[in-house]
Every structure is written in C-alpha cells, then in structure tokens.
Design a protein around this nucleic acid. Structure first.
Length: 432
RNA sequence: GGAGGAGUGGCGGAGCGGUCGAUCGCGCCGGUCUUGAAAACCGGAGAUGGGUAACCAUCCGUGGGUUCGAAUCCCACCUCCUCCGCCA
C-alpha cells in the first residue's frame, strides 16, 4: 500500500501513476474525500474521549475521597457521552473499513507508483528489450517441443501425471526427475555463492500471510485452498520469504537481507484455459528458486540490478540464450515499481518465453506488512525485492529444446554434469 | 485426540477495577569520570493515529461484553508451553 501522507501531499503524482497503468485516477479523489471525513470524525471522537476520561477520573477521585463533588451527576453525564461516542465510533468503523479493509479498502486498491525510469505504455507490446545474451541455436534438424522430447526419451510422463492428478500436472521420471533435482540444487548453490541465505519454508501459508503479500483477497481464485483448513498452497516462495520479517522492527545491521528458497509453487491457472496446454510451461505445480531481498531504500536500484544479474548468471552458466525485458507501466505488477523479465529462447516456438521476473517493490509491501528497521532515531520501511532465479520447470524445458542434438538426444549443460552423476547426454541415440 | 498452564514494551518479569503506557532488572542511547575502554553514578528512551505546535486519542495475544472508568472482571477465538496418546 502507498503512504496515505504521500497521497495527501502529492495527489497528482498518484493520479498520473494510475493513468500510466491504465487504472482509474478517480480512486485518488474518492480516497482523499474519505480521508478528510475520517480526520474530521477522529478529531470529534478524540475530544469526546478526552472529556470522558477526565470526568471518569474525577468520579474516581470523589469515590476514593480525594476530591469533593457530585459523583452521581458526573456519572449521568458520562453515560450520555458514551452513547454519543458509540454512535460516532460506528461511523468511524465504517469509514475505516471503506478505506483500509484489505479486501475492499480503497487504499489497498491503489497500486505502487512506477519508477520514473519505467517506460510508459499501453500493453505488453510496449515493453522494452534491454539486452540479449547468447545466440539461439541453429539446428540442422527440426526443432522439437520439449514435451515431445521428454516423452520420447522417457523423461516425462504426461499420461501418468493426468491419471494421478489431472491436466496441467507434470510427472518426471528417471533422468528427467534427476535433471529437475540437479537444476534445483545447482541454482541454490549458485545463489549461496552470490551471498543469499537458503530458506526452506512451509509451502502452505495462512490467510494473513497471503493478504500481506496481496494474493488475497484479490487473487483468491488463483490459489489452491486446503479444504477444512485456513491454509493455502503458496503460489511462490516470495510469499513466505517476504513475510518472514512481517511486523518486525529490525536493527539496521540486519540489512541487507538476501534470501533464497527452492520450493514447489501452486497455481490454479484460472482463466488460462487453452493457453500453453501442453508441456511444462504452464502447470498447477512447479518448482521455482526464488530470490528475495530486504534493503535500505537507498540501495533499492542497486539491489535490483544485482538480483537481475544473479538470475542471469543461472542462464549464462547453463548456456541458455535469453533476453532481458523492462516492463512498461501497463504490464507492471500491482506491487512493483520496476520489473525486469528474463525470457529464455524456446526453439520449437521460435520465441523467448518468460522464465524470471525481478521486481523492486519499494516500501509498498513492507508498509502493508509493517516491516521496519531502525535508522538512527527513526523507524523506516525497508525496500523489498523479489525475483525468480529461476523457474525450474521452464528451465528444464528450455534445456531439452536448446540442447537437442541431431541424433535425438539432449546435451546436458556442463555445469549440471556433476549434479547428474557425470551424465552428459540424456536419452539413447536414435539408430541412423 | 485427552489433561493442565501461559500470553504485558527489544528481552526477562511485576501489576489483577480508578493519573497504569504501565514498578523493576537486562539490553539500548546521552552525560559525568577516564589517555581510552570497562565499572560506577546521573539522565533519556515504546508504537500508531490526529494536530503547525502545545497537546490529545488509541494500543497490555485477537474479537466481543460488563462498567462512569478495564492490562485488571465475563465470553469466544488464536497462539505457545508441559504431560499422556498417536506418528514420518
């Protein structure tokens, strides 16, 4: 959430931000109107409460013989006061709900302000490519979709996955299962070397945690909920990682905090019917190595560049061609002020597909989660960042497609060979 | 699942209807002393909201209730701990 004080002081800044996102700038004015009403109401209530406190204390003094006066008369006055207060407090509660309820409050419906450096745009078509790394492979043979390679080499068993759980699930077996595990370990080890602390969090989270992260209530239909329990399967490890410091006041020397976790991620993919129905691109359960940072605000931009570089290092070390894209204002996530996407090359599709998204969320999430740190005499909200480093399933798919060789086998990237027990080729060569 | 116990400021721990935002100890910050540090002594310091400010209001796990007045009484819920049972 944004700082209400910022909205009061610079409403035009916020209106502009909403316009650039294709959102309704009128939200600002509706919120300010409610805010003015709130402050008026709060002042009246405070005055009445002060009167009640004073008189109640006077009654106490009289009853204990420390002062003289008519306690009964005062008591009657305070009782009337109390009735007025109850009614005003009801009004205040309504106002608070309208502004600050996590589900419906207007303040929670205003997204983060895009950084000045973010390109203004109307759709994802206005995203800006920043750089490319590597060259898409030129095959003398035909490119093949990863799910076909996987099935053919016995790495992937879609039919079994469907029997067990349904569509949009993946079952890896043999070398395929080992490759997934190798990738997960490889990525985590790399990020440990980058200075991150490894976390293995619960993959279920409660409603408070998901609300603090903005997944609830808005994106309720994107989540899997556990029947009979107030718990949800996490859609990303960002959820537990960013919530670890929720409600805490940290010492300045606890920053920067760099965390990484490799977990399963669960997504209902509601509304994605018909898109990426085959293979491992869009599934209900997948593994992802997540990167999260909490840093002093001054370090925000540097921390983001560093995080993008850490994610890029994964793809570079695996030799996968990719490009870095800067999201425009229209494509930016609700929490984010700046986002870089990493997109890896898929030969069978002849295009780059998202494999990582790294965002600087400024103090937008930490304010909502009341995460703070001591900076000398004052308390401040650190900046939070999150990024994938990277999505494991999509990475495995990219390795299959980019590493496909003329004989039908797949070359294992050198960096993974030690993790594969020395195996450097997946599958048996086709008879020629 | 059964039976008990407990939730108070960064931590420990008092208070159990009337200036209690809360005694005290540790830790923290400033000062005195010291070449410097430690010790000792003196002083300071919670969070949120409103207000230019003085100041005011709210917060003692959460939510209700009783009362002129609640950290203190009542109800519900949540969390943690101990013992028993079960268990990867």
């Amino acid at each position: 959430m944004l700082d209400i004080k910022l909205i009061r002081q610079e409403p035009e800044t916020v209106r502009t931000a909403l316009r650039h996102r294709g959102d309704d700038p009128g939200k600002v004015d509706r919120l300010l109107e409610m805010d003015a009403a709130f402050r008026n109401l709060q002042a009246r209530i405070d005055t009445l409460r002060q009167e009640r406190n004073t008189k109640s204390k006077a009654i106490g003094a009289i009853r204990t013989g420390k002062a003289a006066g008519d306690a009964d008369a005062l008591q009657a006055e305070v009782r009337t006061l109390g009735e007025t207060l109850t009614s005003l407090e009801g009004e205040l509660a309504q106002n608070q709900h309208a502004r600050l309820d996590p589900a419906e409050g207007l303040l929670y419906q205003i997204p983060n302000i895009p950084d000045a450096s973010v390109p203004v745009g109307n759709s994802e078509d206005d995203n800006v490519e920043v750089r490319r790394w590597g060259t898409p492979p030129t095959f003398t043979h035909a490119a093949e979709p990863h799910e076909e390679i996987g099935e053919r080499l016995g790495l992937l068993a879609t039919e079994e996955a469907t029997r067990l759980a349904g569509s949009r699930f993946v079952l890896l077996k043999g070398q395929g299962a080992r490759l997934e595990r190798a990738l997960l370990n490889f990525m985590l080890d790399l990020h440990l070397a980058h200075g991150y602390t490894e976390i293995l969090p619960p993959t279920l989270a409660n409603a408070d945690t998901l609300t603090a992260n903005g997944n609830l209530p808005k994106f309720h239909d994107q989540l899997f909920q556990v029947t009979g329990w107030p718990l949800y399967l996490i859609p990303t490890a960002e959820v537990p990682l960013t919530n670890m410091a929720r409600g805490q006041i940290m010492d300045a020397d606890q920053l920067p905090m760099h965390l990484t976790a490799g977990t399963s991620c669960f997504r209902s993919e509601a509304g994605a019917a018909g898109r990426d129905t085959k293979g491992m691109i869009r599934v209900h359960e997948f593994r992802k190595v997540e990167l999260v940072k909490l840093v002093a605000p001054e370090e925000g931009i540097t921390a983001l560049e560093g995080m993008v570089a850490d994610a890029e290092r994964v793809l570079q070390t695996l030799g996968l061609p990719y490009r870095v894209v800067r999201l425009c204002t229209a494509d930016l996530g609700f929490n984010s002020a700046i986002t870089y996407d990493l997109e890896v090359w898929f030969p069978s599709q002849g295009r780059y597909r998202e494999i990582s998204s790294c965002s600087l969320c400024t103090d937008f999430q930490t304010r909502r989660g009341q995460t703070r740190f001591r900076d000398g005499e004052t308390l401040r909200h650190p900046y939070s960042l999150n990024g994938s480093g990277v999505a494991v399933g999509r990475c495995l798919a990219a390795i299959l497609e980019n590493g496909l060789q003329g004989d039908g086998t797949v070359r294992v990237p050198d960096a993974l060979v030690p993790y594969m027990g020395g195996l450097s080729v997946l599958g048996q060569a086709r008879a020629v």
